[in-house]
Amino acid sequence: MELILEWLGMTESAALLSLSAPGWGANLLRGLANSLQIALGAFGMGLVIGLFGAYGKLYGGPILRDLLAIYTTVIRAVPELVLILILYYVGTDLINKASGLLGYGRVEISGVVAGIWVLGIVQGAYATEILRGAIQAVPPGQIEAARAYGMPTLMTMRRVTIPAMMAFATPGLANLWLIATKDTALLAVVGFNELTLETKQAASSTRAYFTFFLAAGGLYLMVTLCSGAVFSRIEKWARRGQPSLKEAST
C-alpha cells in the first residue's frame, strides 16, 4: 500500500515537472537558461575586469593601485545582495542620467544585461585577486626572458604570462564560476526570472514546495558537477608539461 502511494506521489511530481503545458518543467528550464546566460556573462565580464585589475594592481601607478584596492575591498566586504540592489537601482539610474547628459536619450537595459553587469562587477573583484595571485606565481624569470627578447607587453601577456598563470588561476576561477552560478539566485530578490524565482513561482502556484525546490536543487547540482568535470579537464590541460604540484590554494 505504502509503495503504491509513494509511486502515486512520484507520478504527481512527475506531472508537475513535465515539460508540456500543465507541467512547470519548461519554466524551470527557461529559468536555468537565464541563470546560465547571466552566470556566463558575469563570469566573462569578471575575467576581463579581473585581468585589467590584476595588471593594474601589479604594474599600475599608485593611484590606480589604491583605487583597485578600494574596489576589491569594498566589493568583498559588502553582501552580494546589497551590492546587487545598489548596482541595480543606482547603476541603471546613473546610466540613464549619463546617457541623457550625453544626448543619447534613454538606454533600454534588459534584465539579463543588468544582471550580467551587476554580477560581473562583483565577480571582477574576486577575479582581480585570483589573477593577481596567479600572475605573481609565474616565475619572474619567464617574463623577464620574454622582455629580454624584446617582446612587446601585449604579446608577453598573450604568449607568456596568461598561459603560464592558467595553471595557478584555474582552481580559483573554477570556484568563482560556481559562485557566479549560485549568485544568479540572488537576482530572484530583484524579480528577475532566473531559476530560483521560476521555482518559487511554480512552487507557490501549485503548493508543491518540495517537488520544485528539490528539482531546482538537482539542476543547480548538475551544473556544479558538470562544471567541476569541465574545469578539472581545463586544469589538466593548463598544467600540461608542468611537474605535478600539490593542490593550489583557492
Partner: peptide, 23 residues
C-alpha cells in the same frame, strides 16, 4: 558538503522555510 556547496543558499533557505511549512 557537495549538495550544500553546489546549490544556492537562497534556495536552501526557502526549501527549509516554505517546504517544511507546507508540511
Amino acid at each position: 558538503c557537495t549538495v550544500i556547496r553546489g546549490t544556492p543558499l537562497l534556495l536552501q533557505i526557502w526549501l527549509l522555510y516554505y517546504g517544511l511549512g507546507s508540511l
